[in-house]
Design a protein around this nucleic acid. Structure first.
Lengths: 252, 252
DNA sequence: GTAGAGGTTGACGTTGCGTCAAGCGCAAGG
DNA sequence: CCTTGCGCTTGACGCAACGTCAACCTCTAC
């Protein structure tokens, strides 16, 4: 028994266009054609369609489905590879989500927080006492809440960005780049954007730190060895400061 | 001061093609053009590019970015909507991942037994090579040892039970029985018990398969025609799967 | 004079179909 | 007999975000 393209489409819950597409790419040719080129499908074709749709629903590209079904490829291996792809996508989505959440938080509440987490080797509790003393226990609590709210993924993502930024600075410093050069200024822009993504940073409501905050922070990078070590010591920190100050005066 | 397209591309870490694309769609026109149509970009364009790239990295479509940046749209609202989209994608991915994992589990652990005794007309050596290749000689040897250990009587008995079970499923499926009905659930129980009697089945130590194994297997019945044909094709296999999944969720 | 670097404008390829557009075969109705 | 109309056919464009040629131009350096 054979069915028309519409019958098959209804049975399988897809459009007839999809079936013609599958025919076109050779994924599912009809079992035969009648007058006027009308496609008809037998049970074998239906079963093949079911397998196709299952794999498709798993997110596998049609090209991969074709090879798996046609060439008796190692189905398990294909699925494992596909699983890796899916997990990678999920990770990326998770990072994007925490980023968007962070941006939203900054936009909506503009919470108070200080830069201790990322400036101090990523141990955001390391300077708890100092932070508490300087900005109050309340501020610390909120900062801590923000940090924990990021979740493991978000924290890792944030640390990765922080680390990448620090390395870019260090690399540019070691090459003796001019702090006022385009390259250094681009880094400064990234730095400012990064700061702006941290809720509580003065100016983060606008997505970028205030000029005063940025300049003050830049000085601190040089003055405070805990900061300086993240940028290759005093020399590196000096470079960073000069670049940031230059940036702040021009852009902010 | 203005920069060439390559300068901007390097500074921002994108390709010049991307910049020309952004020009083409009106997202980021160059601040001016020189001889021969050479594009050049000023600082304002660079800042706009930075914002574009930030939003792009958050996974926002270029079209949305354009509206957000140009029409002073509600950025927070746009981000929230985008966040919803991201979360939906993540959910879908999560479901796909668990589905693939289940399918893989069934493929890797289940087929070891099923490939020989049930899927292939009860010729348990027919796919010896395939089994050996996929899961190692050790796995095949153990399965084979179990099978031989049953003796002629035991083997005949097992085959009879297997055959009877398959026929009962097929008969119920053809009558259009509800997978959640008592009748179908009783069959599911028999099926689970049957599985539990096969050494190597996850959970067989307790005499019944684990929930995960049963659900994964159920999916395979639909996905793999070698399984499906034992239950009257895809339709029958779908019925069996639905009944088994329902059973697994309630009983295991 | 000529090569090379760096730029330009097309235009096609990618993925999985949705969505017209134009035309054909067959049945019912006027 | 002719017209509708349904169901189907084969193109062909559109979408997202560019990558990747291809052909051509302009300025500089040797």
């Amino acid at each position: 028994m054979t069915r028309s393209i519409q019958d098959v489409a209804r049975l399988a819950g897809v459009s007839s266009r999809t079936l013609r597409h599958y025919d076109q790419i050779g994924l599912l040719p009809p079992s035969g054609t009648g007058v006027g080129g009308l496609r008809h499908y037998d049970d074998a074709a239906l079963r093949r369609l079911q397998r196709i749709l299952l794999l498709r629903d798993l997110g596998m590209p049609l090209a991969d489905i074709a090879t798996v079904l046609d060439e008796q490829a190692d189905e398990a291996r294909a699925l494992r590879e596909h699983l890796g792809q899916l997990r990678a996508d999920q990770d990326r989505l998770g990072r994007q989500i925490t980023s968007v959440e962070r941006t939203l938080t900054a936009l909506e509440k503009g919470d108070r927080i200080m830069a201790e987490d990322m400036l101090d080797g990523f141990d955001h509790t390391q300077y708890k006492d100092e932070v508490t003393e300087r900005w109050g226990a309340d501020a610390y609590a909120r900062s801590d809440a923000w940090w924990r709210g990021l979740g493991p993924e978000g924290q890792k993502s944030f640390q990765a960005r922080t680390k990448a930024l620090g390395e870019a600075w260090g690399e540019a410093a070691s090459r003796g780049v001019d702090p006022t050069s385009d390259e250094a200024q681009a880094l400064a822009a990234r730095h400012a954007e990064w700061l702006g993504s941290v809720p509580g940073t003065p100016g983060s409501e606008q997505g970028r730190p205030t000029k005063e905050y940025l300049v003050g922070l830049a000085d601190m990078y040089v003055a405070d060895p805990r900061f300086a070590k993240n940028y290759g010591g005093t020399d590196g920190a000096t470079f960073v400061r000069d670049a940031l100050v230059h940036y702040a005066e021009r852009e902010l």
